[in-house]
């Protein structure tokens, strides 16, 4: 835990300290089906925390609990605490809309808005909520698209519908869209699972860039991806945390036999 503390101290010195996520005793249900059991984890600022595990282990549910998207599913319920900035996002006076604005999310399947152009998609959040001038929106759009490493590819087709881009470009457009509202944390739910290897590589490079400014939480079923980009790794099984620690430790000398089995591909 001393490593965590060190990172934390370091982060505090440049006002990123408030972007830490702490999950305590988190339980989540779909109807009567319990998807998460007593999950606890910390996601540090300026680091990538990855969540791995076989499908159905609850990793997507966990990440969706961090910005209160889980409750959007019919019959879904949550108990426990998720501290962001020291505040419990599940406290009664908290506005889920505000939580989601500050904790952005990128989904597994790219979901650009089909009725909006590339330019508008990138600033969709700002357009729908704020009252920015056209020029300002354009400037912010360009900035977000550059941040997502997409600008050079789309600068000549900004007026085309977002759905016309390739799969990898669509996903980066969604990342741009999430970045444009200037979140403090970026949640990524298997952002590259539907992409080809080249696009995946671009996304991974992008994640490496983004972690200098954001707290990044990445769900992936691809262990190599976790090993490549993550600083911290959480291994889950059947809705429970099996092991959490620095990525290198998880992948080289895990404490738990089940983690080792999964890492080495022996798990069912």
């Amino acid at each position: 835990m001393s490593g965590v503390e060190a990172v934390r101290q370091e982060a505090l010195t440049d006002d990123l300290g408030s972007r830490r996520i702490e999950v305590h005793d988190l339980n989540a249900w779909f109807g009567s089906l319990q998807a998460l059991r007593d999950v606890a984890v910390v996601a540090e600022p300026q680091a990538v925390t990855s969540i791995i595990g076989p499908s159905g282990c609850g990793k997507s549910t966990l990440i969706r609990c961090i910005n209160r998207m889980h409750e959007e599913v019919l019959g879904a319920r949550v108990s426990g605490k998720v501290l962001f900035d020291g505040q419990d996002i599940y406290a009664p006076d908290v506005d889920p809309v505000e939580v989601r604005r500050r904790i952005g999310m990128v989904f597994q399947r790219a979901n650009p808005f089909p009725t909006m152009s590339v330019l508008d998609n990138a600033v969709a959040g700002l357009k729908m909520v704020g009252r920015l001038s056209r020029g300002e929106l354009r400037r912010r759009s360009e900035q977000a698209l550059r941040q997502a490493g997409l600008w050079d590819e789309v600068k000549d087709r900004l007026d085309e519908p977002g759905g016309k881009l390739s799969g990898g470009q669509q996903q980066r457009l969604c990342i741009a869209r999430a970045l444009a509202v200037e979140p403090e944390v970026l949640l990524m739910d298997e952002p590259a699972s539907a992409l080809d290897p080249a696009s995946t590589l671009r996304i991974e490079e992008l994640i490496q860039d983004l972690k200098t400014q954001f707290t990044v939480v990445l769900v992936t079923h691809n262990m190599q991806q976790a090993a490549r980009v993550a600083d911290w790794t959480l291994f889950m099984l059947y809705g429970q945390v099996v092991e959490f620690g620095p990525t290198r430790k998880i992948f080289t000398s895990p404490d738990d036999k089940r983690t080792e089995d999964y890492i080495t591909g022996r798990f069912g």
């Binding site: 910005n67 809309v97 989601r100 604005r101 952005g104 969709a124 959040g125």
Partner: peptide, 16 residues
């Protein structure tokens, strides 16, 4: 997914 995409940007439901 489109609803979730907008909600995750911090867009209120009615605007979504």
């Amino acid at each position: 997914e489109l609803r979730e995409g907008a909600l995750a940007l911090g867009v209120p439901r009615w605007k979504t």
